[in-house]
Amino acid sequence: MAGQRVRRVAAPLRTQVLEALRQDVLAAEFEPGERLVEARLCARYEVSRTVVREVLRQLESEGLVTTVPNRGPVVTELTAADAEALFEVRGALEGLAGALFAERATAEQRERMGKVIRRYARTHRKAELAERLAMKDEFYDILIAGAANPVIDSTLRGIHARVQMLRGLSLRARGRGPETVRELTAIHEAAAVTADAAAARAACEEHVRNAAATALRELAAQHPGPHVG
């Protein structure tokens, strides 16, 4: 299994390995529940055990890695119930963030939101999953900053870290790309152009609701069985 080769450039080595392993997890190079063996990771990324351990601790804090007794670190495996709970809270918070953005965002933040959504619309069909996730992260950075609420900032970022793998499932789903463009465009129109707080809240909630339905469907396809939640 070939991973991303870590380039020894200006960025700290730990940061490079963290980004490489994070992207490999999100791209399903490692399966949910798979053990992350230190020796194999050292060989894969050509770094020391110290660096690997630091990276694994960081990814555990983000919710992408779970330490299991007698097994060690494994890729986090979310159940349908876990996913539903996360999306419920995410929808409520993103709806509030959208409403606050409409009321509080600066002209620069409104312009930046439009730019990233237009870039996503132009490139999402050909972009790699990592690129699409990066653009979505940029969109959320702008949305959260424009909401100007530190509690939403810290809480929503923590939730986003835990749903990253589910976001990858949603973005990879057939037909989801054009739907995402439509939904993000609606958020931008309401939150940044017309500054309609109620419409912005509704658009954000719809986006999360549709993303949740797609991710849960993909999750069920990976793990057939009785519905949980």
Rank of each mutant, 00 (worst) to 15 (best):
R22M: 11
E218K: 04
V47A: 00
L216W: 01
A28N: 13
A105W: 00
P12H: 11
I117C: 11
A105L: 01
V208F: 00
R162A: 13
A145E: 11
A80F: 12
I159D: 04
I117W: 06
L216D: 06
T180C: 14
L21F: 10
E54S: 10
R53C: 09
A215R: 05
S48V: 02
A127H: 07
R35A: 12
V163S: 04
I187M: 02
R35N: 07
R40S: 01
T185A: 13
R182W: 09
E128I: 09
G168R: 06
E138Q: 14
A215C: 02
G95W: 05
G95Y: 05
G229Y: 08
V9R: 15
P224L: 08
M165N: 11
A161N: 15
E19K: 13
T67R: 12
P12Y: 12
A85V: 04
A199R: 10
T50A: 09
A97D: 03
L129R: 12
T155I: 06
L93K: 15
D137Y: 06
A92D: 14
A211M: 14
P150Y: 03
G33F: 02
E38L: 13
I142M: 01
S61A: 15
A190Q: 04
V163I: 07
A190G: 07
C42M: 15
L166Q: 11
A99Q: 06
R122F: 12
V52D: 02
A192N: 01
T180Y: 04
E179C: 03
R176N: 09
A102R: 10
Q109A: 02
V55K: 05
Q109P: 00
V51R: 05
E138A: 12
L36S: 00
R7C: 14
A81F: 12
H188Q: 08
L166D: 09
G3K: 01
A127N: 08
H188R: 14
R132G: 13
E189T: 12
A173W: 00
T67L: 14
V52I: 09
R53P: 06
P178I: 01
A83R: 07
E29Y: 13
A215G: 03
A28R: 14
G95E: 10
R7W: 15
V89L: 06
L129F: 02
T123C: 07
I152Q: 08
D141W: 05
L143Q: 04
L93S: 15
L64I: 00
L184C: 06
A130P: 11
T180D: 05
A203M: 08
E88P: 03
G95C: 04
L36V: 03
